[in-house]
């Protein structure tokens, strides 16, 4: 029984990592094309990761390693609780609060790891990341709570299944305001422009990961892929109807990611406090408005 769960979990992990890195690779290509560059090949990300993992690297303290492991491990555990076209390692149904709070352990791990590296630029990026997190979590939570209230359940699976019966039943058509709000929040969640303050290449020497060498960076890259996977998967579950198979699901995920990429490619960057305020006004306002329309009117 437990071995079955672990086996399933292992396979899903592989899939998650694969899709995440693939998305990142395709993303780089698309961004390049929008900017009229040729861009690297779509499998470039795999090459990068393998190369980085193979590199001999230095470390300052075991907390750095602990942080890196927590970061990736936490996010993988999170991904294993998000249903992928209904597939989960065990019958958890994708508990929303668990996903929200488990993902935090990934961020905490990363933050801890980079803090332990001793580079003062790193916590600067983390500070921004966390401020931004406070910004996007609220509208995102508002949207999640709408659907939890609608389905009387706190599971992704139920929310996805509640949209069965054709595209007109999908949540992004029935609750467009919530969809727009969630989209903006996810844009911030993926740290795409205009919300890429935490990396902010021109300002703080590429942010939290500044001090992560070699395989740490490799893990970080995998982590980034996983997080992209989780975020797109969440939106897919919430808005894009029930998926019949994994391919269907992945395509929908890619659709979400594609929108994010397109916005990313053409937008400038907010100042961090303005980003937080923006997130608390437009997406949160949309979410609350949707809540008002849905439950009160």
């Amino acid at each position: 029984m437990i071995f079955l769960i672990l086996l399933k979990a292992f396979l899903i992990t592989l899939w998650v990592v694969f899709i995440g890195l693939l998305f990142l690779g395709i993303g780089r290509k698309i961004t390049a094309r929008i900017q009229k560059r040729y861009g690297p090949p779509f499998y470039q990300q795999f090459i990068d990761v393998i190369k980085l993992l193979a590199k001999e690297s230095i470390w300052h303290h075991w907390i750095m390693i602990l942080g890196a492991i927590m970061a990736l491990g936490g996010l993988i555990a999170t991904a294993l609780h998000v249903p992928i076209a209904g597939i989960l390692p065990y019958d958890s149904n994708g508990p929303i609060f668990l996903v929200l709070y488990l993902s935090a352990i990934g961020y905490l791990g990363m933050a801890m790891g980079v803090s332990a590296s001793g580079n003062p630029n790193a916590p600067l990026g983390i500070g921004r990341a966390l401020t931004l997190m406070l910004g996007y979590e609220i509208p995102f939570a508002a949207v999640l709570i709408i659907f939890m209230g609608l389905t009387k359940s706190s599971y992704f699976l139920q929310i996805a299944q509640s949209q069965a019966g054709g595209i007109l039943h999908w949540n992004f058509i029935r609750y467009p305001l919530a969809f727009i709000g969630a989209e903006i929040a996810v844009q911030a969640m993926m740290a795409e422009k205009p919300f890429d303050q935490m990396i902010a290449p021109a300002e703080i020497a590429s942010g939290p990961l500044v001090e992560w060498p070699g395989k740490f960076l490799g893990l970080g890259m995998i982590q980034m892929g996983v997080s992209v996977f989780i975020e797109t998967a969440i939106i897919t579950n919430l808005f894009l109807g029930p998926s019949h198979n994994i391919l269907d699901f992945t395509l929908k995920q890619f659709g979400i990611y594609f929108i994010a990429l397109c916005i990313n490619a053409v937008m400038p960057r907010f100042k961090i406090e303005n980003a937080a305020i923006y997130l608390w006004t437009i997406p949160l306002g949309l979410g609350l408005l949707q809540m008002l329309i849905t439950f009160v009117l």
Binding site: G74, I76, A77, P89
Partner: peptide, 14 residues
């Protein structure tokens, strides 16, 4: 179960 999954992920990454 969630803890098992979490432990699995942590061990895997380690």
């Amino acid at each position: 179960n969630a803890a098992i999954i979490f432990g699995f992920a942590a061990v895997l990454v380690t």
